[in-house]
Simulated assay, not measured.
Amino acid sequence: MRSILGDAMTVRPAVVTDAPAVALVHVQAWKDAYRGLVPDEILDNRSLERCTAMWERDIPNGGVWVAALSNDKIVGFASVGPSREPDAEHELYAIYVLASAYDTGLGFALASAALEGKTDVGLWVFEDNPRARRFYERFGFLPNGQVKTETIGGADLKEMRYRLTLGTTGAPNTGLPSHQ
């Protein structure tokens, strides 16, 4: 896959040695995406070490995909697994890309890879995150009416449940290059 980042890009399953780079993207993407939504003190104090340890535990379970430039620099990731809610079989737990990769098609490539072969997928997204909501809606997810409130650093943040039912071929036809 060729990206507008000016470098060849590969979307592939993560391996445990990717954990530090995935954690770095995770921490930076939170700061970029949630500034003004999540309290600054929470964003500024995200622990790279704790995040790395989490990904070292989670990556071996599968369901984590990374987007890497030709120099192996990871610029995004997606994570999918069994749904934590009874309304779907699978859940897209996370999809994050560095701000420099916004609007490049990378998110669609990651989501397509992570959701390949899945037919019933849900996710939770902050209601006050219009960029993410537009992305999910463009991909084909629709809000199903469920809402919940998560308290982060003393701030009550409303989350919306989105659902996507796919055919047997997996991810919808987005008109973007596949991850293969």
Rank of each mutant, 00 (worst) to 15 (best):
I42T: 13
Q180L: 14
L176Q: 08
A94C: 12
R2P: 02
Y93P: 01
A29K: 12
T168N: 09
A109N: 08
G76L: 05
V15H: 14
K73A: 13
A23R: 12
T149S: 13
I152C: 07
E49T: 14
E137F: 09
A8C: 03
K148P: 11
L176N: 06
L123Q: 04
L110F: 10
S47P: 04
E137K: 09
T119A: 05
V15R: 12
E116L: 12
A67Y: 00
Q28V: 08
R2C: 01
T17Q: 14
D103G: 05
V121H: 00
N61W: 07
W30G: 01
R46Y: 04
G63E: 11
R57D: 13
G145Q: 07
G105T: 10
W65I: 01
H26Q: 13
I152S: 03
T168G: 12
S112M: 11
L110E: 05
G76Y: 01
P60C: 08
T104L: 03
R133M: 02
R2K: 09
I74F: 07
I95A: 05
N129K: 02
T168L: 15
T17S: 15
E85D: 15
L98T: 02
V80F: 09
D18F: 02
A23Y: 14
A8K: 09
L98H: 01
H90Y: 15
V80Q: 10
F126P: 00
S112Y: 02
A23E: 14
R35H: 12
G62P: 09
P130G: 07
P172V: 03
R161H: 15
T17D: 15
V64N: 06
P39H: 06
H26N: 14
D7Y: 07
G63K: 11
V25K: 14
T119C: 05
